[in-house]
Simulated assay, not measured.
Amino acid sequence: MGFGGRMDGCGQCIKYSMFIANFIIFVGGAIMFGLGIWTVVDKNFMNELLGTNLFAGATYVLIVTSALVCMVSFFGCIGAAKEVKCMLLTYFIVMFLIFVTMLIGGILGVVFREKVEQTMRQEMHSSLKLYGNRRAVTQAWDQTQTRLKCCGIDGWRDWNGLVPESCCQVTYGGQRKPCIEAPSPLTLYANGCSVVTTNFVKEHAAIIGGTGIALAALIIFGMIFSCSLFKMIE
């Protein structure tokens, strides 16, 4: 049944507010889903150097959670439009569980940001010795050095004279300057990969974390509107 008496105006206001909030939540969930896919497809080249699976694991959780947010927000819009109490109650429960999951994910993200530099340096020191012997490690180093324009852990001297071609600077013509036989600061990337990669991961985590916080805030509004609407429906 619908709203009655003097509650009509207030009820309709909450109804449309919930509809708008869920539309924004749907858009936010879609953005987070896109960020998650982008991370998996475009940013997985450094997984071998991270020293932890927390970053990859958090990304997959992000994809699943954001997809679920899109689905639930869509049903929330239907529940508000049709004034179905069962759908509103289900919406509230699922959104609450998603909110808790995102809160835990945010805490893990903070922990990851604090430990990433130490674990990455340790993994880099270990993997540096495996360069050329293990394909996954070799590709991770080459792609990281090429894409982030860095060389070694703290600099090119970490390679002890056996500098990979991926450390060489690229000229405007698209060719790499000769630097393998006679490496020098003029032909090699100047920055070490430890600081560059750490900053890269932290900045990327901050983008995802900021989007997650904004989406969590919207979810709170969605839950408030659904609870209010649930109580007003006769």
Rank of each mutant, 00 (worst) to 15 (best):
K231T: 12
K43F: 02
Y131W: 10
S228W: 10
V61F: 08
Q143H: 13
G51C: 06
L89A: 13
C193K: 01
Y131I: 04
I104K: 00
F33E: 09
F26V: 12
P164K: 04
G174W: 03
Y60P: 11
V195N: 08
W38P: 05
C86G: 08
E181R: 08
L97P: 10
I20T: 12
C86A: 13
L130C: 09
L188E: 11
G5I: 12
N44E: 15
F99T: 04
L108Y: 03
G2D: 15
V163Q: 03
G152R: 03
C70S: 11
E117M: 08
E117S: 12
F96C: 04
G105A: 04
V40L: 15
K129L: 15
V72H: 02
G51D: 03
Y60M: 06
S73T: 10
M102H: 02
G34A: 06
G132I: 09
I24D: 13
L103G: 10
C151E: 00
G36C: 07
I93W: 04
K85N: 02
S184K: 00
N133G: 13
S226E: 03
L108D: 04
F3M: 06
E117V: 05
T187D: 01
P164E: 14
F55H: 08
S184T: 05
N199Q: 10
S126Y: 13
C179H: 01
M223L: 11
C150G: 01
G109M: 07
M1E: 14
L218M: 15
E114W: 07
S127A: 11
I213K: 01
M223K: 05
G9D: 14
M87Y: 03
K231W: 06
G109L: 10
A80L: 02
I153S: 00
E117W: 02
V84S: 12
F26A: 13
T197D: 05
A21S: 15
R157T: 10
M120S: 11
M223W: 08
Q175C: 09
F19R: 06
A67N: 11
R121Y: 10
A56W: 07
I180F: 01
M18V: 05
F26W: 15
K177D: 07
V84Y: 07
G152N: 02
V100P: 06
F225L: 06
F26M: 14
G4Q: 15
G2N: 12
G109Q: 11
E181H: 09
V170P: 01
F19I: 04
G36D: 12
L88A: 02
P164T: 14
A67H: 14
I63T: 11
K43Y: 03
N199L: 03
